[in-house]
């Protein structure tokens, strides 16, 4: 075991599953790079280098560079999954779902149900999300609520390197279509990650902090911010339970409800736009099923209902951070 970045953890997960199962192939725009060009092969290894080196081990038959043609290759991945491969397709930025969503939500997500349970679609779509790289409105969104909305899809949002490896291996071995969200600002974050393959089951939340006063539910990159806020407040005697649901579909409702029942106070932190996001979804869940346990109104920490801005000062204002989470916790704890 050694410290590994989120980028390495994902690369290891892909390599380990490609070694284990010859049906696993990966595809995407410049996941190797250099096709047909006079220079180096594997020139990029993915736009942020996540898949670098896989070409060397697995070759062009299993590391498939695609033209810029999301509709065709995401659909091809869905069709390949339904016919015997286990493809991992990289949708470079989730913002590009607009040019291929039909293949995900009308095709892959619905095969099994429409075909009366006779289809199996072991597809993984890896995709980058999130603000923080000054990538502006069309390369920074957190669109996981839109995928979470679709029955038939599973949606995974890892919050660290350890989580990313185990959840991605689980995703690749899962027989349902999975959309796997990678926060582009987290690729260099490191922690201890086992060398061996391991799996983290879907629908089982991780409790990253245990406390008595406030329950905080946070997703993806927001988990570390919630932990920071919780650690700071713990020194003042306000202790929080921080829940990382890991997957928004399936969602570990039981853990959220149990912990809210224990603390009576809830803050939900979601980097997605505030209308119909995971914060509203979990607030509704708690309002319906744990209302009597609540000692204070639920607080949601989200960005404003605007596109993601470009200018650094604006983007920093846009992204929820530890300070806002801390403020929300103080308010519900008061």
């Amino acid at each position: 075991m050694a410290k590994k970045s989120v980028r390495q953890a994902i690369n290891e997960a892909l390599a380990s599953e490609m070694r284990r199962d010859p049906r696993v192939v990966i595809m995407g725009e410049d996941i190797a790079g250099g096709m047909g060009a006079p220079g180096e092969d594997d020139a990029w290894g993915g736009p942020l280098g996540v898949t670098k080196g896989l070409l060397g081990e697995f070759g062009r038959d299993r590391v498939l560079d695609t033209p810029i043609t999301e509709s065709a290759f995401i659909g091809a991945a869905a069709g390949a999954a339904a016919t015997g491969l286990r493809p991992v397709a990289e949708l470079m930025f989730v913002d590009f779902m607009g040019v291929c969503f039909d293949q995900i939500y009308n095709q892959a997500a619905k095969f099994r149900y429409m075909f009366g349970g006779k289809a199996v679609t072991p597809l993984v779509v890896r995709t980058m999300y999130g603000a923080g790289l000054r990538a502006a409105s069309q390369h920074s969104q957190c669109l996981y609520p839109m995928f979470t909305h679709i029955p038939g899809l599973k949606v995974v949002i890892p919050s660290s390197a350890y989580e990313a490896k185990g959840l991605l291996i689980q995703a690749i071995r899962d027989d349902d279509p999975v959309v796997f969200f990678e926060h582009k600002a987290m690729y260099d974050e490191e922690e201890e990650v086992p060398d061996e393959a391991y799996t983290i089951p879907f629908g089982e939340a991780n409790i990253t902090r245990e406390g008595d006063d406030v329950t905080v539910v946070a997703f993806g990159r927001m988990v570390q911010f919630a932990n920071q806020a919780a650690d700071k407040l713990a020194k003042e005697g306000i202790t929080c339970t921080v829940i990382d649901p890991r997957t928004t579909s399936p969602l570990d409702e039981d853990t959220i409800l149990e912990e809210v029942a224990a603390t009576g106070r809830l803050v939900v932190v979601d980097e997605a736009s505030p209308r119909c996001n995971m914060a509203t979804d979990i607030s509704a869940l708690v309002a319906q099923r744990a209302f009597s346990a609540l000692k204070a109104p639920v607080r949601m920490v989200t960005p404003p209902h605007t596109p993601v801005p470009f200018a650094a000062d604006l983007e920093d204002l846009y992204i929820p951070g530890p300070a806002q989470i801390e403020q929300a916790i103080r308010e519900v704890a008061a």
Partner: peptide, 14 residues
Amino acid sequence: PPLICGAALTAKTL
């Protein structure tokens, strides 16, 4: 058509 590209890819790969 995109789906069938996938079925063809399966045939080719396997």
